[in-house]
Design a binder for these strands. Structure first.
Lengths: 334, 334
DNA sequence: CTGAAAGCGCTAACAT
DNA sequence: ATGTTAGCGCTTTCAG
């Protein structure tokens, strides 16, 4: 049988109000005698507060939703870990959801989180949303955006990286290494991420007086299968190229694989650059040159921002943005 | 302003009880006229049920806890994904927690989950627990164990693999390939997982008339750092060996790395076998021979079992166990 | 310094 | 076929 605040009140011979105040360190003037007594009784009976009941009245659940495309994509576990660590530090817990970039699932999950009355949501917007109202618009739950941008009310903050600048760094690096015909294989250009990286790619070419050629751009999905398909495509099309810049490491690793299996030497014949710096990038051979994103920090900071917003009502109005630094990690694939 | 059941009752000119029944498909005899009316009013006003209030009375939260060591360990994301998929199918959501195999954190999280009144917990027991009461013992929340075994009341089921048999398969494979001096690098032998794999290792040696030598066993942690340390140790100790069986792929990948950097040729000089078959195992070079564990299924089945237990009270008494099949994946490291 | 009482939004007997 | 009512366990005025 679960012990309630009522039982404690009865045993300690005080009122439930007193017990409640003591257990929450609220009452400013409660004799230390009763305080200790109540504490003791609570301890002795192994009292576990019922957060449902509490939330019902306080309208706070100390729970936040984490909505990401897929935890099995190596980009996200670190991020999820950062988020959970910060949440835990602050006494929050995390409900996590995988959308697979599917708009219906996204909708369903946001509704579910509304019903569960999460205090806020850390959200990676689907790469497939091309417009229309995001489900986060409907409710009134504060949202922190992560990785991918999106315009909407309810958005209280953003944790992003400068994708344009990062792509620019990567492609410039390739050019400095003497490469001129650079293929760009990436995810759907509907996502702001892919779009900005595309811009960075173009800008680097332009600043180095290399003509942009649409045929060198292969936009599909941020998945390893797409890396395989796109590499074979570009190879079969017969356009000459001496480097590949990839929208993420998963793609880059597939590119490496296909290229090697078709007899190319990396980086002698073709250089490859990835994006994300997942653990695998340092393990494969040749080591993958890539852009390091601070995944753990992204998750951590997003939750920090969210909790800040929640607990400091004066911050509830303003939007905040953090652009995290990326770093070019040079390995032997270039 | 949030719409409540009361508002709907007022607008639709019925009682809250009626509204409640309709919204939950409960009342067996309600005129379709009122039913439709209530449904319409609910839709029109964008009614979102308050699960707190509901849970408070039903004592069910439709939430389950997933307690694992570390989502950033590549073994777990797939498992977490399987768990979430099944939970989602059944209308449950998942609160996820990382314990880092730390007993204090484990305790803290289990308490937190009790307060949040999760309906059940899917739990990977810390590899460091050597005895004493697990925090899952204290409460009365049904628990499904995953990956690592543990004895305790409240445990309603287990989803495991036959680690002994799997290790036996792996080591036998090495022996068939002509290897005789097989090093075993693994995590702490306090975990049932490491222990059983150790037994399998010993059994395979014995069945092939190879003497077991303690010096060939390096038990530390299931982490890549440990792979590096242990490999260097064994190399420096100067014992001759021609194969390494690793407690997991993370370790195996480190072993591969160190071995290569110290000039050994794989598998010519030394064969390496891992355990888990994480994605990386197929990507690195040489491809890592390993034992494939059905991670996704483990998560999926664990949640399935949990929900079954929760929703069919007649199952609440009996314990259930599933031992999933493993498979030896032969790649070029052997 | 402490208690009484109202009510958060919902469900589930029990009435009608 | 629908309404009345009593809580679920907790917090929070408002009195005393």
């Amino acid at each position: 049988m679960k012990i309630t605040i009522k039982d404690i009140a009865r045993i300690a011979e005080v009122s439930t109000a007193t017990v409640s105040m003591i257990l929450n360190n609220k009452g400013n003037n409660i004799s230390s005698a009763t305080r200790e007594k109540v504490m003791r009784v609570a301890k002795e009976n192994n009292y576990i507060p019922n957060t449902m009941a509490r939330s019902l009245v306080t309208r706070k659940t100390k729970t936040i939703g984490l909505v990401i495309p897929d935890i099995a994509n190596p980009f996200f576990p670190e991020l999820a870990r950062g988020a959970e660590d910060k949440a835990n530090e602050a006494g929050y817990s995390i409900i996590y959801c995988n959308t697979d970039d599917d708009l219906e699932k996204e909708e369903k999950y946001i509704n579910m989180l509304s019903e569960k009355m999460v205090d806020g949501i850390v959200f990676t917007n689907s790469a497939k949303r091309t417009g229309g109202l995001s489900p986060v618009d409907r409710g009134c739950i504060p949202v922190i955006l992560i990785d991918r941008d999106l315009e909407s009310k309810n958005i209280k903050g953003r944790v992003l990286i400068d994708n344009l600048e990062a792509a620019y760094k990567a492609v410039s690096h390739l050019i400095r290494r003497g490469r001129k015909n650079i293929v760009f294989i990436t995810g759907a250009l509907t996502s702001t991420t892919a779009k900005d990286r595309h811009e960075g790619y173009k800008k680097a070419l332009k600043d180095n007086a290399i003509k942009y050629n649409e045929k060198y751009v292969k936009a599909g999905e941020f998945r390893s299968d797409w890396g395989i398909i796109a590499t074979n495509q570009i190879l079969d099309e017969g356009l000459p190229f001496d480097a590949v810049f990839c929208g993420n490491d998963l793609i880059a690793i597939s590119v490496l694989k296909v290229l090697k299996s078709r007899g190319y030497s990396i980086p002698k014949d073709i250089s490859v650059v990835g994006f994300d710096d997942i653990y695998m990038a340092s393990v494969i051979e040749p080591g993958l040159t890539t852009i390091k994103q601070p995944n753990y920090e992204m998750g951590y900071i997003a939750v920090e921002m969210l909790i800040d917003t929640l607990e400091k009502p004066e911050l509830l109005i303003e939007q905040r943005s953090v652009i995290l630094e990326t770093e070019l990690i040079v390995r032997s694939s270039t």
